[in-house]
Structure formats: C-alpha cells, structure tokens
C-alpha cells in the first residue's frame, strides 16, 4: 500500500459522510439536495403556507390586544 492510499479512503468516506450530513442539515433548513432545487415558488410557498397563517393569526391577536 502506498502512502496516499489511506488518504483516498478517508477522502471517499468523508465525502459520502459530508453528503449525508448536508442532506439532513439542509432538510432542517427547509432545503434539499435531492428532489427539487427548492427554488420554485410552489415549493417555497407551500412549505411556508401553514407557518405564515399561524404567524398572521398571532399578529392579529397581538394587534387586537394592543
């Protein structure tokens, strides 16, 4: 075995690990490596729709209390 061979093994394993990490990290942020780019308005909008509604309901209750 040559000196760089372990490095290649480490690089390959790290790359696979990084992709898996990125997948879950981006998923948490509402983005995705697979499936779609997450750029489309339908996707973004739908993801946020319920949150937005909750947000606006809260906003209204605040306004009402004020």
């Amino acid at each position: 075995m040559q000196w760089f061979e372990p490095l290649i093994i480490i690089a390959a394993i790290s790359f696979v690990g990084l992709v898996i990490f990125l997948h879950f990290y981006l998923k948490k942020k509402g983005k995705s490596l697979s499936g779609c780019s997450g750029n489309c308005a339908i996707c973004k909008g739908c993801k946020n729709k319920e949150e937005k509604l909750k947000e606006y309901k809260n906003l209204y209750s605040k306004t009402k209390n004020n």
């Binding site: 390959a12 992709v19 997948h23 780019s37």
Partner: peptide, 21 residues
C-alpha cells in the same frame, strides 16, 4: 438554468456519493 444547476448539484453530491457506495 435552474434545471441545469439543480442537475449538476445533484450529480456532484448525491449521485457522486452513491457511485462511491
């Protein structure tokens, strides 16, 4: 461009990792 960018990102991450596995 959006499609191509997405395709390249996917190829250089998920698909590349999958080819290693």
């Amino acid at each position: 461009w959006d499609k191509l960018k997405h395709y390249l990102i996917k190829a250089s991450t998920i698909i590349a990792a999958c080819t290693i596995v």
